[in-house]
Write a protein that binds this DNA or RNA. Structure first.
Lengths: 346, 346
DNA sequence: CCTCCTTGTGGAAACGCTTGCTTATGTTTA
DNA sequence: TAAACATAAGCAAGCGTTTCCACAAGGAGG
């Protein structure tokens, strides 16, 4: 049925080994033979069986993306789509296939990962954002599988990772609001077990302290990376007797929730509440008003993660890459949501 | 290094065949042997080599998603993210892995597909939205590979597919505006080579004719599934001497563009222009104002597509599924963007 | 008591490919 | 002219499974 290397060999009057060598560009194959075999492969519609190849070469030319546990929700976040886009693009340029994997529970997730890696279905993995204590990281690390983290681990520091300097990013975001004249600035954070939440919160704190501004514990609320969290945070803040004039929000999606609530209550952005958030997903410029956001180069993060991972996969030919931890630069995109200076009240 | 079936066999004092049979739950294995072998597998941390298994069974337990050509752009559309989410969820429930593939050009795309299918890396494919003449469909069809189309083909009608009744959906959308009292209704379409564009346009036409409303060719503009297209369409319509009071827009993303342009010009939605669009992506309720949209159950489309595909993959055990073409019901979600009745002017 | 089935297991080939070793055919070198 | 080498291609083993076939042991049927 399907045409194998043997069929090609027979038809070309050479041995299977020769055909295989033509395929892999072995140096000791004569130009003529090579050309002849190639013509025949074309004629017969030959395609190498990837499984057979993988079996002997012990390498699959594919990697997997491991989505964080509550994939159902997070999936909807454009953030992950951008990340995946970056990964898929780069991987496919390097001749790698990409497999998407996610589990409903952490246990399921671990099972999936171990099936894929131990079963030699993929050569390596990309983890999208890490929690404080991550069983998957432990698994991958102790078994010596190539993997890269988009984000950072607070447990290991010799791990391949691509990340944003979230502390600095939050510092910059807060600073921007301060430079616009805001002094009463709140922070809407993410889940406390995510490292990114903590780093961004810390950056906010640093900036406030650095400018001698008051850090009220009332003005820091935690939530999820969901629109609803923003909505809730907004009503919390607006009901405060003494409320902030600006907010640093941990993720654009959360900002959408804030925005929505504000518009329902007929508050205006940025006049009643200015906003800066993170990630600059494609939709942050589409909202009304457009949201100022720290662009962290999501696509670029994904692209780079894939690059580093593929470099780290042991190959017969090349030395492994040297990169360990890479920081992708961020930059603040100022849009309407923060273009307002409050009246000085001191 | 890695533990194989032979290692387990040796340690358990049985033959490799027996271990293999334990693995696959063969009926003629004694309960005792089975238990013993399983314990040893656990102890030794055995994981079956998926490649070896695939090689002999000629089946990979994985499918691939083929993204439409200009993946770079479309990827950003939440639409695809939702679709992928549905597919991945269902596939993983059925024990299948999902591979994402996309090519920059149609030729590259075809090469990727043929590498994956002919190379027996995947058992089947899901195509996301079809163009008028699709080489990939031809390839899959003539080679007899299992695949399902999310959308429909105008060339073959014996193809596995999951789709929305786009004609009816557009009819409903238009009808809704008419029932709100609009008589001057325009249509913002997508690329004419996409079947979905044509079907929706046709539904709009049918509804207009059915109510005896004027179909001005001025009031139908084509574009891409991009925000920019909406922006352009908006300025076109607003500069018309005789302009519509409502628009049916082929995709929510396009509506965002319309909305943005309108707000820049200080027009108000729905008072100056009412809007209904399609797909009901998670963000359509987040815009200001929220957009009325035809919910086509994107996640469900993906989920079902995966289900049908996996059923159609020939297995030793089961008969292939019987479904050929499945229509997922749609429903109109009315939001603020269409909640306005124009003043009767006749 | 002998044959025939059933049950549980082992042996070995096969899946399609790569690769180290070997061989055949020139081409240099001493 | 013989020895030494470079080049091109073939042979066969092996990657980790599955599965057909064979086989042993025990029980049932005649």
């Amino acid at each position: 049925m399907t045409v194998t290397i043997k069929d090609v060999a027979k038809r070309a009057g050479v041995s299977p080994s020769t055909v295989s060598r033509v395929l892999s560009g072995h140096p000791r194959i004569s130009v003529e033979t090579s050309r002849k075999v190639k013509v025949i492969m074309e004629e017969m519609g030959y395609h190498p069986n990837i499984m057979a190849k993988s079996l002997v070469s012990k390498t699959t030319n594919s990697i997997c993306i491991i989505l964080p546990k509550p994939a159902e929700e997070l999936f909807s976040n454009l953030f992950f789509m951008e990340l995946i886009r970056g990964i898929v693009t780069q991987a496919s340029r390097s001749g790698y296939d990409v497999l998407i994997s996610s589990g409903a529970t952490e246990k399921e997730e671990l099972a999936a990962v171990s099936r894929l890696l131990k079963g030699r279905r993929v050569d390596g993995a990309i983890l999208l954002y890490s929690r404080k204590d991550d069983a998957v990281i432990d698994f991958l690390k102790t078994n010596g599988y190539p993997f890269v983290l988009v984000g950072r681990s607070d447990k290991y520091d010799d791990i391949l990772s691509v990340d944003t300097d979230n502390l600095m990013a939050a510092y910059d975001a807060t600073n921007h609001l301060i430079s616009m004249g805001h002094t009463r600035i709140g922070f809407v954070s993410g889940p406390p077990n995510l490292i990114v939440s903590r780093d961004r919160l810390e950056g906010y704190r640093k900036a406030m302290e650095h400018h001698g501004l008051e850090l009220k514990s009332d003005w820091i609320v935690e939530g999820e990376f969901l629109q609803e969290s923003g909505y809730r945070a907004m009503s919390f803040f607006m009901n405060l007797p003494s409320r902030p004039t600006a907010l640093v929000v941990v993720d654009d999606i959360v900002s959408f929730g804030v925005l929505r609530g504000l518009s329902e209550l007929n508050y205006s952005v940025p006049a009643d509440l200015a906003l800066v958030s993170f990630n600059n997903i494609p939709l942050s410029e589409l909202s009304t008003p457009p949201i100022s956001s720290i662009d962290i180069g999501i696509y670029h993060l994904g692209y780079t993660a894939s690059q580093i991972l593929i470099q780290a996969i042991p190959k017969q030919s090349k030395e492994p890459g040297l990169t360990r931890r890479l920081i992708i630069p961020h930059r603040l995109i100022v849009r309407e949501s923060s273009m307002f200076s409050p009246v000085r009240s001191e």
